[in-house]
Amino acid sequence: MITAAVVGAAGYLGGELLRILLGHPAVRVVRATSERLAGRRVDGAHPNLRGHTGLTFRPMSELDHYDVLFLASRHRETMRVLPGLLGHADVVVDLSGDFRLADPELYHRHYGVEHTAPGLLGTFTTGLPERYRDRLRTADRISVPGCMATAGVLALAPLAEAGLVEGEVAVDARTGSSGSGASAGPENLHAERSGAFRVFAPLGHRHEAEIAQETGLAVRMTATGVEAVRGVQVLCRVRLAEGVAESTVRAAYRDRYRDEPFVRVVAERRGLYRLPEPKILAGSNFCDVGFAVDGPGGEGLLVAALDNLVKGGAGNAMQCVNIRFGLPETDGLEFAGLHPS
């Protein structure tokens, strides 16, 4: 049995990690930390876990040693605590943004603060199985990409790798309110969020840097908050190389993702769900990708959708850990989503 602990377990992402871990056939959750809720029951913060665990939140000072330690703490905070936590586990999986970018200057530009552990940047394997599966088999430090970055990279990668895209890419991302976390500010009160389509990052969202780093493309990104709790959808507008037709794009996607257990190509000509739709992915670890093409060598619209807390976070982390410990990649991640929801 793999022993696991979750740091920052009181938030939405921590709760999703616990939900997945508690249902995993080869994992035993030993510790869930929260400084604010220390001593209180885990199922008080995560009522969906009632009857599934008797754990109580404990402070980080009570951490022991585990096979795997998941960090679901906040951006800018994780880099301060992580150096002191590395000795508490054989494998450390970080779900914050603090170790996703290899360049400390790039981190400063997108997060607004100096990195306090720059020597650790570049020591983490990117937690994206579709690109780094072989490295993940032996990785002891894993950094899970951001939710919108994961969707953007999976949408763009097949065409970028095949040299089918030219020039700058425009990424339009939409996300539900859970992406702001359980302790989000007044801008995420129901009275302010309900009915709104808020462009909260008109230019330069931090996931822009992740997508550019992973694909090698010039990327410009806009992010909008929409009236949904879960879900991310990204629309990537690209200029296709000369002579590239829809059939070439479809073949690139099918060839790239044919053997991937959690990426599905969705580009239908009829039906309600012709292109990727986050509504039907809630709770699942799938990322659906699709496309529309405006003639050979014209414009392409690449679309991806996922649940921001699962394939965009906790599920992706679990998939990486399955690979790292030689387990079936789909263990604990079999839920197919809901329809209708």
Rank of each mutant, 00 (worst) to 15 (best):
G298S: 07
V232S: 02
H207V: 11
R109S: 10
G283K: 07
R237K: 11
Y12W: 06
L189E: 13
S177A: 15
A182C: 03
G152K: 09
R193G: 00
P145G: 08
A102D: 13
L82T: 07
G225T: 08
C236Y: 12
A149F: 03
A155R: 05
G216M: 11
V81F: 05
G54H: 05
R131Y: 07
A182N: 05
D255E: 15
R269T: 15
R269N: 14
S73C: 12
G112T: 04
I2T: 09
A160P: 04
G152V: 06
R239K: 14
V165F: 10
V144P: 03
L302S: 06
A5Q: 07
N285F: 01
L128P: 01
R206I: 10
A72M: 02
A38V: 06
G243L: 02
E168H: 00
Y66C: 10
L306R: 06
G337F: 01
R74C: 00
T53V: 01
S194F: 15
D172C: 10
I211Y: 07
V29G: 08
G152E: 05
G146C: 09
R76N: 12
T125C: 12
T116L: 15
V199W: 04
N188R: 14
G127K: 14
T33S: 10
T215R: 08
V289Q: 08
A191F: 04
G283R: 08
V169H: 11
D255C: 09
G195S: 08
Q319G: 01
A241W: 02
D94R: 09
S177R: 15
A184C: 08
L55D: 05
G332H: 01
R141A: 04
R193M: 12
G181H: 10
A89R: 07
A38S: 14
V93G: 00
G225M: 14
L309Y: 04
V219K: 05
G332K: 10
D140L: 14
R40Y: 07
E166M: 10
A117L: 07
F124D: 05
G300K: 13
V93E: 03
L333N: 07
A196R: 15
R198F: 13
V232P: 00
G313T: 02
L272P: 12
G119Q: 04
Q233N: 06
L272I: 04
V232C: 13
T330C: 10
L159T: 02
S341W: 15
T330L: 13
G337P: 02
